[in-house]
């Protein structure tokens, strides 16, 4: 039965689709981790961005503005995280927890205030980012069905893997970010402002989180609902760890989780207890982290 599922092209199409938010979030995790800042608040950032995207796209009836607003919201949230953890020196984990709490309640609060909807943006005519049937490729059997026809943001996510790689390894700012993550003292001694570099890393992380959040409410589904990120921001942290902090490795790990997520969706349709099946992505993450840690320990 599982074989039937796996051998269908629509399943693999779904894997790519479902991996998109995890991939964006995991890339966000990479960028901030490289600067030595563990961004626990990716989950909350995505949630805030997903609401912002819905609100602005409904208000302006423009997809572009909706997505841009989502990205801006992501950056703004990242700035708040940066201020409290880097300037006021709150422990970054606690700041992240606080931000996630704030996002969870604050988004519902804001939605209610703006639209009167409680918990779901039913009455908003929010837009969806369009899909793209890639000419030529869409006609290739099997591969075409899997790769073509995706939401633009999905393609953007995979392109971002390259962008992040190039940024981190070929651009000066990338070098500085990685240097700060390795040895703050050394960077400071050269006269560079460590905090400013960490701010930039967090803002980039915010851009990526914002895109991930935008996808959730403007691509994956076309509405905002309470706590809709459902832990993907945390799964992304696991993906980053398992990908050893490399963009390509992280992409692979994110797709493993995407696989689990898609599988869970398909199995639900098959009358298998919904609850058992919904555990799959989360258990996969735990197992993944377990394997990663045992390997790490053995390598020592």
């Amino acid at each position: 039965m599982i074989f039937d599922i796996i051998s269908s092209t629509s399943f693999w199409y779904a894997v790519l689709r479902v991996s998109t938010p995890i991939l964006f979030a995991a890339l966000a995790a990479i960028v901030s981790n490289k600067a030595g800042v563990v961004n626990i608040a990716i989950e909350g950032t995505m949630l805030i961005s997903s609401l912002t995207g819905v609100l602005f796209s409904a208000w302006t009836q423009s997809v572009f503005i909706g997505v841009s607003a989502a990205v801006a919201a992501g950056v703004l949230t990242a700035l708040i995280l940066a201020y409290f953890s880097l300037n006021l020196k709150t422990d970054i984990t606690l700041t992240g927890i606080a931000l996630n709490l704030f996002a969870s309640g604050g988004t519902i609060f804001l939605l209610y205030l703006v639209t009167g909807d409680k918990g779901m943006s039913g009455s908003l005519k929010s837009l969806v980012v369009p899909s793209w049937d890639i000419p030529v490729i869409k006609n290739i059997p099997v591969i075409g069905e899997i790769i073509s026809g995706h939401n633009l943001l999905t393609y953007l996510a995979f392109v971002s893997v390259i962008v992040v790689s190039v940024l981190l390894y070929r651009f000066p700012i990338g070098l500085r970010i990685r240097a700060v993550g390795e040895d703050e003292g050394a960077v400071a001694s050269v006269g560079l402002n460590v905090t400013r570099i960490q701010y930039i890393a967090l803002m980039l992380s915010g851009v990526l989180s914002g895109l991930g959040g935008a996808f959730m409410s403007m691509g994956y589904v076309s509405w905002f609902s309470k706590d809709m990120i459902a832990g993907r921001g945390f799964i992304a942290l696991a993906a980053e760890a398992m990908g050893r902090g490399t963009p390509v490795g992280t992409m692979t790990a994110a797709m493993v989780f995407g696989f689990a997520d898609a599988l869970s969706n398909y199995l639900q349709a098959l009358q298998i207890s919904a609850e058992l099946v919904m555990m799959i992505p989360y258990i996969t993450t735990i197992i993944g982290l377990f394997i990663y840690s045992t390997k790490k320990k053995n390598n020592k």
Binding site: F84, N87, L88, K89, T90, D91, L94, T95, I97, A98, L99, L101, F102, S104, G105, G106, I108, F109, Y112, L113, K118
Partner: peptide, 20 residues
Amino acid sequence: PSEVISVIQALVIVLIAANS
């Protein structure tokens, strides 16, 4: 709406735990 509490909670956490 009662969710205004989330704002208070978040602020309390970051301010209390802020070493600076």
